[in-house]
Computed example of a mutant assay.
Amino acid sequence: MTQLLEENTLKALQNKALEIRKEIITMVHRANSGHVGGSLGATDLVVALYYHLMNHRPDNSDWEDRDRFVLSKGHCTPVIYAVLADCGYFPMEDLKSFRRPGSHLQGHPYQPITPGIDASTGTLGLGISTGVGMALGGKIRNKSHYYYIICGDGEIQEGQAWEAAMFANKYKLDNVIAFVDRNYLQTDGNSEDIMPLDPLKPKWESFGWQVMEIDGNDLQQIVGAVGKAKEMKGKPTMIIANTIKGKGVSFMENVVKWHGTPPENKDFENAMKELDHGI
């Protein structure tokens, strides 16, 4: 693939991803609750978007012409909260209140109370449906911004996701750039054992989407795919991002246990040592 990111930019994004992974581990350990595996796996996607690709203003979270981001796999809030805090949407100190009673940082994104959150999600399938509806609104208002959506692969076993796919095709929503976080693991096990999705690329193509498949933990490939998506006119784009659940922590990688299990003290210490070594 053509080199899209200069070496210094790539290194800065890689270091940022490591910092965000440390925040994810810390938040979930402190709360003794939360989804660590999928958050770690999706970190490179969210970092590429917020630190390089998206137009957004942390000092004005309601800026009308900002790009929108919808975390359809809403249980993976640790990654988006860590990024939003680091960008300056709210104080880093707030991360200590993750999943605490009265906190604005609940287990699933809640748009009315959390600066930087563009859509409330949690019920699987709801986020992509909300996102394409928002994108149609943008089209009607002749807006040029993009709507970025990250779905889980277990999530798109829901029929609602495919209704959204038909909707986006019907209305030619080329302002939609979506991702399937394809790690093959969900809370009950391997997605192909529970409800097979493969072959996934031709499925989305048959619904009228432009489809690409990338390594979702490779920042160069993420940036390149989004650039290609922006060149597409007249149809939405789905990027199948093959990721490693638990990416960055060796004993969490590709282990279904870490879908929603918080790390105990020893696991937390070992994870942080690995991530410190990575930086």
Rank of each mutant, 00 (worst) to 15 (best):
T2F: 05
L5G: 06
L5S: 03
E6D: 13
E7V: 13
E19L: 12
K22Q: 15
V36N: 03
V36F: 02
V47S: 05
R66C: 07
L71P: 00
G74P: 02
P78W: 02
Y81S: 04
G88H: 11
G88P: 03
R100I: 00
R100Q: 15
S103C: 10
H104M: 14
L105V: 11
L105M: 08
Q106W: 07
Q106C: 09
T114Y: 07
A119I: 10
S120E: 03
G131I: 09
M134A: 08
K139H: 05
N142Q: 15
N142P: 03
S144R: 14
Y147S: 09
G154Y: 02
G159M: 09
M166R: 13
L173F: 03
N175Q: 07
A178P: 01
A178M: 08
R182W: 14
L185P: 02
P196W: 03
D198C: 00
P199D: 12
W204M: 09
G208S: 10
Q210S: 11
G216D: 04
D218W: 01
L219I: 13
I222G: 02
V223K: 06
P236H: 03
K245A: 01
G246D: 02
G246Q: 04
P263Q: 07
N265K: 15
N265C: 00
D267I: 00
A271P: 09
H277W: 07
